[in-house]
Write a protein that binds this DNA or RNA. Structure first.
Length: 478
RNA sequence: GCGGGGGUGACAGAGCGGCCAUGUGCACGACUGCAGAUCGUGUUUACGGGAGUUCAAAUCUCUCCCCCCGCACCA
């Protein structure tokens, strides 16, 4: 396997050599559940879902852990504003997160630990840091002492001396060094809190990921992922805490960071208010189209999210689905162990593998699909069922990784459409569409074109667009 | 200020020393009962500006310009 992945720590592409041969320990920073996830979150989880799927297809056993941060300042703020309990808010948005991910075909991680279930491990980790002189206590709060960690700046590649030059946040005067960060925060009256040796409180922002990763994977892991905005301070702090507590380096062998989703060339973010939630987008587009859009750019590059981009994505995806549909209809159902001499297929398999092995270049991988389907369209008349069947097997393998609905059936929820899907099911049911289409096919077979056209017009008025592809008809909701 | 990532044809976006990326759009043609989808052919010197290295540069070096991201809120 010639797989190479970009490591933010070394700033270069490296082969993957897991701590335990054949087994990949992987952790991805999950959401803080105080609101619905937006397209930016979707990108992160779709990208890492693709990574996990591809690694598994390469024969690696991936142990994938992704946390739920269900206690945090922002959740407490939301609770104070709405009057709801922090726990209720966290629970509600945790469920929403899982629903959104399921619709986007993001597989569940093997384990989704929650911060509130990990408090004992967090307290242990903080105690260890205090005992070893890496952390100190100041009236209710515990801070990490950055001067005890020589690896400061290693992951973010910052000169530690320069780090405060552009600081945007006011520095807590109780810190010994302005760069120190909170491991434990004392509770204000009424806030959800846990008892600790330092008084009632809750974990600081960074410690939970260290604790959960160590609990699940041990002191070291192979791949740690998240959005590029997490490199600093979040992941930098994780490195300092984890390595100082366990004495093992590196905490993670490979750090992977996905690029942002942009709106008008600016990062989509909650604080700027320029975001679309996943459910807003999915109210108007098939989930496969959003997933396709996100995977149609290499995961480290920024991706522009616009209505036009969604339309273009749906057109491109529709072509792939149409092509796959035609290929499937010419493949022989009985042939399973097919072999093919068809050159474009071998070329497609080779370039797909090269693209994916090169730090998961899904954009390039998708380009090979267009090339393959276009070659198929040209060569179709002279190809055997075995050729088609082998090509189809390849497309299935691709679909297992990308999960963009290549094998969607016409009219199904994953079938791309350029216009919004109705939020509520339209007046006409799928079964009724199928029945009318069967009637129309029969009419066409006996060359009764006026009847066929009447049915097509009738369906069109119900918002169903019918397309004749080869011998079969496909349809989609407009 | 410090650190990072970019600027590719009408648009989106790969490539990162020599070979047609790919998709969308547009134009013309083919096929189809019609429509659409599909197929073919185009869309003139595509690589931010300038200098250099090389037989050969979008790709390497230097320099300048512009955009974005991070700097203790964030996927």
């Amino acid at each position: 396997m010639a797989l190479r992945l970009y490591n933010s720590l070394t700033r270069s592409k490296e082969p993957l050599h897991p701590l335990t041969p054949g087994i990949v320990r992987m952790y991805v920073c999950g959401p803080t559940v105080y609101n619905y996830c937006h397209v930016g979150h979707a990108r992160a989880y779709v990208c890492f879902d693709m990574v996990v799927r591809y690694l598994r297809q390469c024969g690696l056993q991936v142990h994938y852990v992704s946390n739920i941060t269900d206690i945090d300042d922002r959740i407490l703020t939301a609770a104070a504003q709405s009057g709801e309990s922090a726990r209720a808010i966290a629970e509600r948005f945790t469920q929403a997160y899982f629903e959104d991910m399921q619709r986007l075909s993001v597989l569940r991680a093997d384990h989704h630990p929650r911060v509130t279930d990990t408090i004992p491990q967090i307290l242990d980790l903080i105690s260890t840091l205090v005992d070893h002189g890496h952390a100190y206590f100041v009236d209710g709060d515990v801070f990490f002492d950055v001067t005890t960690a020589p690896q400061l700046g290693e992951l973010s590649h910052q000169d530690p001396e320069q780090q405060l030059a552009g600081a945007r946040v006011e520095v807590d005067v109780r810190k010994r060094d302005p760069r120190d960060f909170a491991l434990w925060k004392s509770a204000k009256p009424g806030e959800e809190s846990w008892p600790s040796p330092w008084g009632a409180g809750r974990p600081g922002w960074h410690i939970e990921c260290s604790a959960m990763s160590i609990a699940a994977h041990g002191p070291q892991l192979d791949i740690h992922g998240g959005g590029i905005d997490l490199i600093f301070p979040h992941h930098e702090c994780e490195v300092l805490q984890s390595e100082s507590a366990t004495g093992k380096r590196p905490f993670s062998r490979i750090w992977m960071h996905n690029g942002h989703v942009m709106i008008d060339q600016v990062k989509m973010s909650k604080s700027l208010g320029n975001f679309f939630t996943i459910r807003e987008v999915l109210a108007h587009h098939p989930p496969s189209v959003l997933r396709f859009l996100l995977l149609n750019t290499q995961y480290r590059k920024p991706v522009e999210f616009t209505p036009e981009a969604m339309v273009e994505a749906s057109k491109a995806l529709l072509r792939l689905q149409q092509g796959t549909f035609q290929l499937a209809s010419s493949a022989s159902a009985g042939v399973t162990e097919a072999s093919s001499q068809w050159a474009p297929l071998a070329a497609a398999i080779a370039s797909y593998t090269t693209a994916m092995d090169d730090d998961f270049n899904t954009r390039d991988a998708i380009a090979t699909l267009f090339t393959l389907l276009s070659a198929y369209a040209q060569d179709a008349p002279k190809l055997s069922a075995a050729d088609a069947t082998t090509a189809l097997a390849f497309l299935r393998r691709v679909e297992d990784v990308l999960s963009i609905g290549l094998f969607a059936t016409p009219g199904s929820p994953q079938w791309a459409s350029t216009s919004p899907l109705p939020a509520v099911p339209s007046a006409i049911e799928d079964a009724e569409v199928m029945r009318l289409l069967a009637q129309r096919d029969a009419a066409r077979a006996r060359r009764d074109f006026p009847s066929a056209d009447t049915i097509r017009r009738q369906l069109s008025e119900a918002g169903i667009e019918v397309q004749d592809v080869g011998g079969t008809s496909t349809w989609r909701r407009r």
